[in-house]
Each structure stands twice: as structure tokens, then as C-alpha cells.
Write a protein that binds this DNA or RNA. Structure first.
Lengths: 241, 241
DNA sequence: CGATTAATTGATACTTCTCAAATCCTGTGG
DNA sequence: CCACAGGATTTGAGAAGTATCAATTAATCG
């Protein structure tokens, strides 16, 4: 099923110059000289589905930049239950929050799929921050943007029903990971993972997904979900924007 | 009851040099020269209880630094219900998130009490960011720290019961605003405001407060709450740290 | 292909919300 | 300083939403 031994991306380091995946990435502020520096300092690794890139509570020595793959950021709750804070994929920078605030990691980063990620050491990052004000400002922008998103999530969790939140989560997953050739969400999450994102019990997700299916909003094939009526989901979920 | 007409702080601008209230404030990174600059650029105003400093959705032209007072940051939910994201008081800088991310304000800032706040124009702030890397880094630290806090709040909202969250909120209020001479929380929030912080119905707050009173954890005198057993509240609320 | 994990379904209990009515408090104006 | 109006708080009852537990079926991975 896998031919990872032959996959050329397995061990060849990616060049940062050709790898700015997101427009809204702090790295987009860097010139080719700076990118060269980072490219030189970084090391690339591969993570299989389920493997942990960074562990909540530990102190990071750098950040990861996702070259290719899908991860989740989750936080352990009081009763040992995971809460998924958000997903990330190609071009996202991870671990910078904790590195910049000087705190331990607030979430565990775990691969949802085979993921190639580049590790940028703390020193290289801070060097860039000190010498490139635009990069520094962009990092700050990124943090501030996420802070705004967090406010929305807080308000939703506090005020919306499980059904509304599930509808919104399906749309978030769609926006983040897109569709595969069959038009299904391009990520196979377990019902439990969806529940851990929504903030509810696994059984509730199952019942509501089946309700959405009956209503014709989605199509279910095992772990694969296809969104049939995004507009209706947005209405059910009271999704703004 | 009020002698605000005679209050010397009413209209006299405060000097930033003598006004760094929080150790963990971005302004603490500034030397006396920089503080003088800000002191010169800023303008001070007074807000009565209930008055709005900044309105969600608008585009800020600067930030507020609270000299003296108490405010809440709240976000409007889909059904017109407020969600209080956090409280702030002396030494806190407000509105910087939106200013730095270039977005509209994600929350409304409203005075919970008579509040004296200094307005620092965008230009003065950005000038400081560009010329003082340490200040810039401290701002970033602040944003990243708050982002970590937001993750905790999200996890709590998703996983804890209303009772647990209320217990925690009482401790947060205590930590933020401290006690008055009678040992009560030094802020008189309505039951509804507490509910909007906890993320529940007003009646639920009322019932649970009365339960906490019966258990001897707190004492109630109208809107005034006195914490009698913070340790037990922490246990009830599964509060870490 | 088999073992294990995940998903589903049903029944039930519990938490939390909503609505309504009564009482209390607070801020305001006289 | 007091009385009063209007808002805030309290209480009860009932409904709705959600979680939990248990048992069965289905899917997945080596």
C-alpha cells in the first residue's frame, strides 16, 4: 500500500525558497536570502499517521513548518479527554506560540496523515525576528489573528448547541482540508476526533451526522464524509462570514 | 456618594513614566525616553460604569492602556447574547490584537466601573514597535500568552460542567480584581454578567451560587460575593495550576 | 482472514435551559 | 434623604438537550 521507501520526498530536504504554501504565512515576508538561511538551518522529517510532532507540556527548541501533510493540535482536558483546538496543513507554522511566549507547549501536535515537516531551530527563528522587522510583524499578525479566531470559538462553545457546532466543524474541515477526487472531505477523522473538536460525546456526533445524512446535507461512507449542501449546513450552524 | 468633580485624576493626564502597573506589560520594556514619547502622544479619558471604550466590529485607531479601573471584553453571539471573553484592569493594554492583525475589533470593551484610560494612537504604537525590538517582542509574547489562555478556556468550555466553570470563574474574578476591605470580590457583577462569562443561563448561575453558599464556599450579599473557601472552589472546579 | 477497534443503536438518567411568577434591590429624581 | 419605578434576582415547574451505559454490528489494519 505504501511505497515510502521509494518516495523521493522521504529524505530529500525541501528548499524553503520554493515552499511558501500559504499566502498568510509569516514566511511570505522573507526574501530569498532569509529563506536560504532558514533552508540551511532547518531539518526535515517525516511523520506517519498518529505520530506526535510535539508534546503538550514540553519545551520546544524550535518550530515546525508543514511541507506536506495534515495535523491536529489538541489539548488534554481534566478528565484525560482530548480537545482539538484546530487543524493545520501545508504551509502552517506550529509551536511558535509557546516558543515566543516562553511557555511550555499548550497543545500536542499529531499527524492525521503522513506528514513531511521541517524543523526550524529556535536560534534561526529568533535571528530572523531580530533582523527582519517585517517577519516579526507578520508573526505578530498571525498570533493576533489566531487570537481573534479563538474568541469566536469560545463564543460558539458557550452559546451554540451541539448540532450547530457540528455543522460548523464540518464546514471548517472542508475549508481546511478540501475535497478528494470523489468530492469527500480530504481527511478521514474518527467520530471521536470530530466529537473532540465539537466538544461533545462520540454518540452525539454519530446521531447528528446520521440526521444530517437523512436531511440530505451530507453523505456518509464509513469514515468518509461528503458535503452535499454546504449552504444548508451554514444555516443549521448559524455560521457567519 | 461621588465627588468626581473634585477628583484630581479627572482631567490631569497621567505620566506613563510613573504608571507601569503590570510586571507582565509590554510597556515594561520601554525606557524612560520611549515612555516619554508615548506619554506625549497619548490622551487620557474617563469612562463611567457601562460606557463603551471600543466597539466590536469597528476599526481601532489606537489602543487603550488602563490607568485605573475595570473593564470587560465581550463578544456578541449569534442570538444577541454577550460572551465575556475576559476582564482587564490597571495596566492592561486593550485593542492591540485588532490593531496588529489589521482586523476589526473582535470584542467590545466596556467599563465595569469608573475607569481612567489612556489612548495611544496607532502611529505612536507602530513607531515604538519599529524602533524598539524588545517592546515588539514583548507585545508578541503578550499575544502568544493570551493565545495559550484561550486554549485553556476552549477546553474548559468544551469539557467542564457549568458548576465547574462557575467555580473557576469565581476564582478568576478573585485573581483579577482582588478583594475590597470587607474581603468581598472587588467588583459587583450582575448574575447575568457572570453567566455570560461562564457560558450558561442566568438562572443556572443563581442556583449554583446559592448551592456554593449552602456548602459554605462563598457568602452572598446582594451583588457582592465573598469567597470563603478558595481551595474547595478549586477542587469543585477542577482548577489546575 | 482474524483480531481489534470503531461505529451504531437503544434505553435511560442527568444536566441545563426556558418560561413564568413573585420578590428584592438599585439607582434616580424629588 | 426617601420613595418609587424598573430592572435584577430568586424560585418553581417542566421541557429539551446531551451524556452515559450497554449491546450489537461494521470497518479497519496487520
Amino acid at each position: 500500500m505504501q511505497k515510502s521507501r521509494l518516495d523521493p520526498s522521504e529524505s530529500i530536504p525541501f528548499s524553503c525558497e520554493n515552499c511558501i504554501k500559504k499566502d498568510f504565512s509569516a514566511l511570505s515576508a522573507l526574501g530569498s536570502e532569509d529563506l536560504g538561511k532558514i533552508s540551511h538551518a532547518k531539518s526535515c522529517s517525516h511523520f506517519k499517521k498518529g505520530e506526535v510532532l510535539m508534546q503538550e507540556g514540553s519545551r520546544p527548541t524550535g518550530v515546525y513548518c508543514i511541507h506536506n501533510g495534515k495535523v491536529k493540535l489538541s489539548k488534554m482536558g481534566t478528565e484525560g479527554k482530548d480537545q482539538i483546538l484546530r487543524f493545520a496543513n501545508d504551509g502552517d507554522i506550529l509551536g511558535y506560540r509557546s516558543l515566543l511566549s516562553g511557555e511550555t507547549l499548550s497543545a500536542t501536535i499529531q499527524a492525521l496523515d503522513d506528514t513531511h515537516a521541517c524543523f526550524i531551530p529556535k536560534a534561526a527563528l529568533f535571528d530572523m525576528i531580530e533582523t527582519n522587522p517585517k517577519f516579526s510583524l507578520d508573526l505578530m499578525k498571525m498570533a493576533c489573528h489566531e487570537l481573534g479566531e479563538a474568541g469566536k470559538i469560545i463564543t460558539n462553545l458557550a452559546q451554540k448547541t451541539v448540532k450547530e457546532r457540528l455543522a460548523e466543524v464540518l464546514l471548517i474541515i472542508h475549508k481546511t482540508f478540501g475535497e478528494n477526487p470523489e468530492g469527500q472531505l480530504d481527511i478521514a477523522l474518527t467520530r471521536e476526533e470530530i466529537a473532540n473538536m465539537v466538544g461533545t460525546a462520540t454518540e452525539s456526533v454519530i446521531r447528528l451526522l446520521s440526521e444530517f445524512k437523512d436531511q440530505g446535507y451530507i453523505e456518509l461512507k464509513g469514515r468518509r464524509i461528503k458535503i452535499l449542501d454546504a449552504q444548508e449546513l451554514a444555516i443549521v450552524g448559524n455560521v457567519e462570514d
